[in-house]
Simulated assay, not measured.
Amino acid sequence: MPDAPAAEGSPDSYSVVVIGAGPAGLGAALNIVRARHRTLILDGNRPRNAATLHSHGYPTRDGISPLELRKLGREELAGYPEAEFQNARVTRVNREGTLFRVEAQGIRGSADRVVTAESVVVATGLVETLPALPTLRAFYGTSIHSCITCDGYEETGKPLALIGETSDLAEHALLLTRWSDDIVVFGPMGEEDERALAPRGVRVERRPVADVVGDRTGLTGVQLEDGEVVPRTAAFVRPIYQPALDYLAGLGADVDDWGLLATDGEGRTSIPGLYAAGDSTVPGPQQLIVAAGSGARTAAALVRDRL
Rank of each mutant, 00 (worst) to 15 (best):
S119R: 15
V120H: 03
V120A: 03
L126C: 07
L126E: 03
V127M: 12
E128T: 13
E128P: 02
E128R: 14
T129C: 04
L130Q: 06
L130I: 11
L130H: 13
P131C: 06
A132K: 14
A132I: 11
A132T: 11
L133R: 07
L133A: 10
L133P: 05
L133T: 05
P134R: 12
P134C: 08
P134S: 06
P134I: 09
L136F: 11
L136Q: 10
R137Q: 15
R137K: 08
A138Y: 08
Y140H: 15
Y140C: 05
G141C: 08
T142D: 12
I144D: 09
I144S: 07
H145Y: 14
S146G: 13
C147A: 12
I148S: 05
T149S: 09
T149W: 14
C150D: 14
C150N: 10
C150R: 13
G152K: 06
K158F: 05
P159M: 03
P159N: 07
A161L: 13
A161E: 11
A161P: 01
L162P: 06
I163R: 07
I163S: 04
I163V: 15
I163K: 07
I163M: 11
I163L: 15
T166Q: 15
T166L: 14
T166G: 14
D168V: 11
A170C: 07
A170G: 15
E171K: 09
E171F: 13
E171N: 04
E171Y: 06
L176T: 05
T177Q: 09
T177F: 00
R178T: 06
R178P: 00
R178A: 12
W179Q: 00
W179R: 00
S180N: 02
S180C: 03
D181S: 12
D182A: 10
I183P: 00
I183N: 02
V184G: 02
V184N: 01
V184F: 01
V185Q: 05
V185K: 05
F186A: 09
G187N: 07
P188L: 02
P188R: 08
M189A: 06
M189L: 13
M189R: 12
G190A: 01
G190R: 09
E192P: 01
E192M: 11
D193Q: 14
D193M: 05
R195G: 00
A196S: 07
A196R: 13
A196G: 00
L197D: 01
A198C: 00
A198T: 11
R200N: 02
